[in-house]
């Protein structure tokens, strides 16, 4: 059974059909790409998957469990985490605290234990710090753990967003243009990191990307959106050679 099953997903904003009849399925541990020209509806698909928008029709199934119509909180708890196209960190909090917020539902203790500093506070905080620093280390961010997240350079902010999403222990990670604003060296490094995350954490990753080197370099499958409808999906190499895809990107 596929990890994520999207069937005939539709949403319209007023008269605009932002996504129509979108259907793909993602396997466990798969690296899946979602591409398409600007305004094609890619980010909207992410917002539908994470419960920010409710679909007009269609169904989303994660691990056999229907999740469309659920709240973003519930969807996160059932195993989908994401990053955002324009970085959205908790900017007045430290790098470490951003990750610890991500661990909110993984390592718990009550507000009461927190106020009175009961043993569970010390034990769980220690665990949280260890887990958070271990995650930050994967992205070479552990030395900046005390900095305010808004003071990190752009590339590191993108990485921190990924760390924060990973901290919620997802089965499926959604990355919205992770390479945006990166130079070729950074992109190459990011490709390795994404593969590493997939293997290390044993999760599936769905990513939106305009950089075709990244997509062809790491994605096993790709779906193409154009004006809200799915143009095609399948094996990355075949899809990228498809004349319809090339036309959609370059225009007639």
């Amino acid at each position: 059974m596929a990890l994520l099953e999207i069937k005939d997903l539709c949403i319209s904003f007023g008269g605009l059909q932002a996504v129509q009849n979108f259907s793909i399925s993602i396997e466990q541990n798969q690296l899946y790409g979602l591409i398409g020209p600007n305004g094609a509806g890619k980010t909207t698909v992410f917002n539908l998957l994470t419960g920010v928008y409710k679909p007009t029709s269609g169904s989303i199934t994660l691990d056999g469990q229907g999740i469309s119509g659920k709240s973003p909180m519930e969807i996160n708890k059932s195993g989908i985490a994401r990053t955002y196209q324009n970085i959205r960190l908790f900017s007045n909090m430290s790098v470490l605290d951003n990750v610890k917020v991500g661990l909110h539902n993984q390592i718990k203790y009550s507000a009461f234990s927190g106020i009175f500093r009961l043993p569970s506070y010390w034990k769980q905080e220690k665990l949280m710090n260890e887990r958070a620093l271990k995650l930050l280390k994967v992205f070479d961010l552990e030395h900046q753990s005390k900095n305010l997240s808004c003071n990190l350079p752009y590339g590191k902010q993108r990485k921190l967003e990924i760390v924060r999403a990973l901290a919620t222990n997802p089965k499926l990670l959604l990355l919205d243009e992770p390479a945006a604003g990166m130079n070729p060296n950074e992109t190459a490094e990011l490709m390795n990191t994404i593969k590493f995350i997939r293997d290390e954490f044993n999760i599936a990753i769905l990513l939106i990307e305009h950089d075709m080197r990244l997509v062809s370099g790491i994605c096993e499958q790709v779906a193409v959106l154009n004006f809200g409808s799915e143009l095609t999906h399948g094996n990355t190499n075949e899809v990228l050679k498809d004349p319809r895809v090339i036309t959609a990107y370059l225009g007639e």
Partner: peptide, 26 residues
């Protein structure tokens, strides 16, 4: 103590970005 604990981080996450906080399971 409340502010400097798991709950306090949730408060501040909501302050900094409610939508993201919700998306992270808070």
């Amino acid at each position: 103590n409340l502010v400097d604990s798991r709950s306090g981080r949730a408060f501040m996450a909501i302050r900094d970005n409610r939508i993201v906080a919700e998306g992270i399971g808070i």
